[in-house]
Design a protein around this nucleic acid. Sequence first.
RNA 1: GCCCCUGUGGUGAAAUGGAUAUCACGACAGGCUUCGAACCUGUUAUUGGGGGUUCGAAUCCCUCCGGGGGCACCA
Length: 527
Amino acid sequence: MREKILIALKKRIPEDVRVDVSIAENKAFGHYSSNVSFKLAKIRNKAPREIAEGLSLSLSNEKEFEKVEVAGGGFLNFRLSQKVLAHELKDILKKADAYGSKKLSKAKQKKIQVEYISANPTGPLTLANGRGGFLGDAIANVLAAAGHKVEREYYVNDTGNQVRTLGLSLIASAGFIPFEETFYKGEYVKDWALANKTTVKKFKDNPEHLGGLAANHFLKLIKTAIEKKAGIHFDRYTSEKNDVHGKKFIEKALELFKELGVSYEKDGALWLKTTDYGDDKDRVLVTSEKTPTYFLADAGHYFETKVRGFDEKILILGPDHYGYVSRIQAAATIVGLPSSKVIITQAVRLIRGGKEAKMSKRKGLFVTFQELIEDVSPDAARFFFLMISPDTHMDFDLDLAKEKSLKNPVFYAQYAYVRAVSIIKKTKIKKGKEDLSLLGSGEDIHLMLKLSEFPEILEDAAGDYAIHRITKYILELSKAFHNFYEKERVGGVDDELVRARLALVGATAVVLKNALGVLGVSTPKKM
RNA sequence: GCCCCUGUGGUGAAAUGGAUAUCACGACAGGCUUCGAACCUGUUAUUGGGGGUUCGAAUCCCUCCGGGGGCACCA
């Protein structure tokens, strides 16, 4: 719908200005509105209102619009004709599951990798991991719906210092060496050490190996929690050990940097000129002790992604990685993935008994993500996180979350779906021609309009990753449907009208299902 | 000290520089002989302070005040 208006406007505007058309939030302002006359006012040196009036007169001839009004200082308010909306309704029913999704030509289609969670397998997942996980999962869905090829990646840091530290923590927990401050203190460490005492004893002189064994175990738990319980999916668990180090991407990356002339030696260490790419200082790739840094491994990881044919990568990180962003972006650009993005989700603070409870993996203080989804259901947790912009700092009160979980707005949306499905099931009617022009009441029109917005919402989300707009849209659509239900009857009216309204209800079910599906929220038929 | 995020009804949030700032929860008052009341209707309140840019600012700029996070030849 927006596209139609844009085209109609551009046809009448010779100037090269950005034409904005937005969904009118207030019904009094029509269905869509544009502020283009304000933009033109400057260029043409004319009053916006005058320009708007000229445009409205000409636009009123287009049959798609029932009305094009000038309002305020020069806004153009568009009211779509019933016919256009009814036509879109048919389209929804025809496309069904595919409604809202796009198909792109090979030339336009990109191969995008979305990396999320990637928590170190040194313990259970935190709430912040869950937040990033739901977000990444949804972003991947949205990009796929926008027609791109998407890979969902979990990058496993299964080598290096952390794994060693985990091994040492286990050996210390079993009492073979003294406990040090830097070790992992969580219950899970102790539990594993006690449950596997003979293994710990056997490898007490090889913390790397022991850490690796435990990491495997924790990774299995993580996989179960996210895939089976939370419904967060991955296409690939990339192993730092096997896929990056094992396939020589450390060396390959170093070679590439040398070729490109972006690395140099100083003070016995090897540096990457990340300052040329917006970082505030250059970063070390290989220390003067000749050990590769973690950053080098990450750069190698990016290179590996590039070599596997990706056009860009979207990485979702927690707030503790903020300082890492600019160097990662620099590395991405250097290895040939310049349009890659890093999205930082802000902190999830845990509140208990009105006080902040600090979460820390090392100290072993946290509420696990698994605990959350068991208490409030995966759908509710997912919807809750995806309702909020990643930039928002969240205070999360677990006790309150449990208590409030029944009031979670996700049920409002799911209930709308259940209602729609139930109506379709209960309304018996002989097949016949449907006359969609009968859908003319305020509620009918408003619902049709909301339905037709879905592709636009999806398109916007694919552009700016603002997943929470989809969530908000779902609630708006649900409300439009509940309102429709309250005012209009589907069954028990004239056959012709029943068929028409049934089409509308059917289309609502389709869009709700598709929209919730993109978020990864289920659509039960009963509640 | 420097950098990033942030301050919106009692509470939690929303708002590509657009109009009368939108939801949910809570509270209060109503609504089921009919397709599922996990629903609907009504009442309640306001962008931290001060400047500036703009036809137009919650949004951009400056400044002050408050909250969160980050600033290693660690991972």
